Computed example of a mutant assay.
Amino acid sequence: MSTDTPAHTAAAPGVVACVAYDRSGQRLGDIALAAISDTLRAPERFVWVGLYEPDDALLAQMQEEFTLHPLAVEDARNAHQRPKIELYGESLFVVARTAAREGSRVSFGETHVFLGANYILTVRHGSAPGYAPVRRVAEQNPVLLAQGPGYALYAVLDAIVDGFMPILETYQAELEDLESAIFAAQWKRSTLRRLYGMQRELTRLRLAVAPLQDVLAQLERLHPAFIPETVRPYFRDVNDHANRINDAVNAMREMLGAAMNVSVSLVTLNQNEVVKRLASWAALLAVPTLLTGWFGMNFRHMPELDQPWAYPALIVFTLMLCGGLYWWLKRARWL
């Protein structure tokens, strides 16, 4: 390692963990970042490093310690990558989108993973959950961790995929509550706004899950230099979870689309009912207006006006017309 590279330690900003393990899966302890390359040269050792939004200097040091490809390092620096898997010489570069529920909204992040024969380096951006619990669980099963960095990669991706499920369960419960609001007597604009917000977040969730399936399928079949045969069934299991989550996301998006259509249709029906009632009352008012306007004309020769029964007859006739029209409108369910 060159002497002009800053010597970050495991407690430096951006460094979450830097741990060495032996090939039996036993934790050897934390190591300084400057000692990574020396540890990698030691036989029967592998290193697990976790970073969170590292700066350029820290990424440059990781590139030198692990001999990482500059294109992969550039992607890890910029983030905003799609889920993918790429082979760069003696290392795999894996990108996964993460999601976490924060209050009433979902925040998305990214995790970039560099995988070698004797190391795994994770770089988190955004709201990606930490992987300290993942490491603790893996360390409690040294027999599985003894399978090397390939198993550590499985543990990370399994945690990412499992993190999608609570979000879906929350959406399902929220959709059930919104269904009752959709059919409520009083329509609320906030209901349609929330349906649209859920549809948008589920679309983003689908963009995180769907491409990850291809990544998991490759890890399940390819890259034998990094993924031992004994670890492949674990990736098959994670891929199955991702498939089920993707199917659930698609089904829920269809349900949300149907709920939005129903909500808009109900609003249109309510508006039609209001228009029908207004038109019915307008018709009822038009009858006396027409008759009074007719007999209110200033003509001298209107013989019916000279009859003593003309006024009460007009009142009765008007009431009969209005009553008949009201009965007809009521029967037609316009009133």
Rank of each mutant, 00 (worst) to 15 (best):
V238L: 03
V106N: 09
W48A: 12
F108V: 15
A32E: 15
S180L: 10
S91T: 13
A310C: 03
T9S: 13
E53Q: 15
A251S: 14
S91G: 03
H69W: 09
L145G: 08
V123Q: 06
F114P: 02
E64V: 13
N78G: 05
L175N: 05
V231S: 04
A259K: 06
F317H: 00
V106F: 06
G324C: 10
T268E: 14
A251Y: 10
V262H: 09
S104Y: 08
R189M: 09
I245G: 08
Y171C: 05
D38C: 02
V231G: 07
N243E: 13
P6C: 04
L192W: 01
H223G: 07
L205K: 11
L284K: 02
L256Q: 07
Y131Q: 08
E220I: 02
A208N: 12
S180C: 00
T5N: 03
L195Y: 07
R232A: 08
E176H: 07
G89M: 06
L71E: 07
Q147A: 12
A42E: 15
A32R: 11
Q186N: 09
M320C: 12
L153Y: 05
E254L: 08
A132V: 09
A79V: 11
L33T: 11
L291I: 15
L157D: 12
T67L: 15
L219E: 04
A12H: 07
V47R: 10
V94N: 05
Y21I: 14
D56W: 01
D55G: 14
G29P: 01
E201A: 15
V274P: 00
W334V: 02
V262E: 05
V47P: 11
H8E: 02
L87W: 00
L202H: 06
P233Y: 03
I227N: 09
L115K: 03
L195A: 04
S37T: 14
L92N: 05
N261A: 10
I245C: 03
H112I: 03
L278C: 07
P288Y: 05
A34E: 06
A117H: 08
Q307E: 10
G103S: 04
P303A: 11
K276D: 04
V47N: 10
V274L: 11
Y171A: 10
Q186P: 00
V137C: 01
F46Q: 03
E90H: 12
W328Y: 07
L144K: 13
M165Y: 14
D306S: 13
T292K: 01
